[in-house]
């Protein structure tokens, strides 16, 4: 029984590895429309991973994630179209700009706690969107298109361009995943996981939680900013309500992660896949699409708050990727004894 489960787990890991390899080669295998869809998928995946890192591990629920996506979009436009910098260089610079905005934003919203912090991030996003609408060089309230010369610098033909943008998105998603994996395996990650499970636990691990939360908040900003730059490359224009769209860059993302499984490495990936599959069938329904997603996520929280991955996890004996350091039998025994003694 156990070995059967172990076998299927290893099989699943193998499938995942194959999927990653296939994803890397996607533009060579798929039609242009599919590449566009897959690029969108990679951007959404980055946003989901970042939101999950904050909400699922660092105890920072943000409803203002779209702020940094928008800042990244505008910064990318500013660096490449207005300042005339290299378009490729402008993508990481967009991440730097998002980081630069994240520092004062954090100083403000970290004065608020939990639910208040959540709405605080929303206010910050609202302010940034309103300010973006006042920048005449960026087209003011109605936004503007990316100059054609910049678009062409990513590829002369549509096919080349789509492939390059896709690979950028793929590279960003892969980096995001790798960075999260490394972070969660580090001492800080262990501390955050301990805090999530039990307040005293974090203190026992000896990780400064305030420092860890600051690191996570600032760490997500560049990824969100670069995602904003790549999204801009796909949409070919910036505009305050679109670049700072709360529905696209925050609402959908939250639903993805909640349905997939909050506080797990696999959750955002599963959630984003489910979201794209559902979207094929539901997007024609208009507002009902969002009503259904909202209902799904509430039901998820009530039934299994660890989401779809939580349901799957009940049947497996390990994570797909071994994030958690497994305690030795001796450690487990002493922890049990300690707990018994405290009673």
């Amino acid at each position: 029984m156990r070995s059967a489960s172990r076998l299927s787990l290893n099989l699943a890991r193998l499938v995942c590895a194959a999927a990653v390899a296939a994803a890397a080669a996607a533009p060579l295998l798929l039609s242009q429309n599919d590449v566009v869809l897959l690029t969108e998928f990679m951007s959404m995946l980055v946003l989901a991973i970042m939101w999950n890192l904050l909400a699922g591990y660092a105890d920072i629920v943000t409803v203002g994630q779209h702020a940094f996506v928008g800042v990244g979009a505008y910064a990318f436009f500013g660096f490449t179209a207005l300042a005339g910098l290299d378009p490729y260089l402008s993508i990481p610079l967009a991440g730097v700009a998002a980081l630069a905005i994240a520092v004062p934003a954090m100083a403000l919203v970290f004065r608020l706690r939990t639910a208040y912090l959540a709405i605080g991030t929303w206010v910050v996003a609202e302010v940034l969107m309103l300010i973006a609408g006042k920048l005449d060089a960026f087209g003011g309230g109605s936004g503007t298109s990316l100059p054609i010369s910049i678009v062409l610098s990513f590829g002369r033909t549509r096919g080349d361009r789509l492939a390059v943008i896709y690979w950028l998105a793929f590279a960003l998603a892969a980096t995001a995943m790798l960075a999260t994996y490394v972070l969660l395996r580090s001492r800080i990650g262990v501390g955050l996981t301990a805090m999530r499970d039990n307040e005293e636990g974090a203190a026992a691990v000896g990780v400064n939680i305030t420092y860890a939360r600051i690191l996570c908040f600032l760490g997500t900003a560049p990824f969100l900013g670069m995602a904003g730059a790549i999204i801009t490359l796909q949409k070919l224009r910036i505009a305050p309500p679109a670049s700072f769209s709360i529905t696209d860059w925050t609402v959908f993302v939250i639903f993805n992660v909640v349905i997939g499984g909050i506080g797990s490495f696999e959750g955002p990936i599963i959630g984003t896949i489910v979201y794209f599959v559902l979207r094929q069938y539901l997007s024609g329904l208009g507002p009902v699409h969002l009503i259904l997603l909202g209902s799904f996520s509430i039901i998820t929280i009530l039934v299994e708050r660890r989401g779809l991955w939580g349901l799957v996890r009940r049947m497996l004996d390990d994570d797909l990727l071994p994030i958690a350091h497994k305690p030795s039998p001796a450690f487990r025994a002493s922890a049990l004894l300690l707990r018994a003694a405290r009673r």
């Binding site: 409803v63 609402v251 969002l290 997603l293 909202g294």
Partner: peptide
């Protein structure tokens, strides 16, 4: 937060 957020969207 997540439940009331879901309600808001619904």
């Amino acid at each position: 937060i997540l439940v009331t957020f879901g309600l808001s969207i619904i």
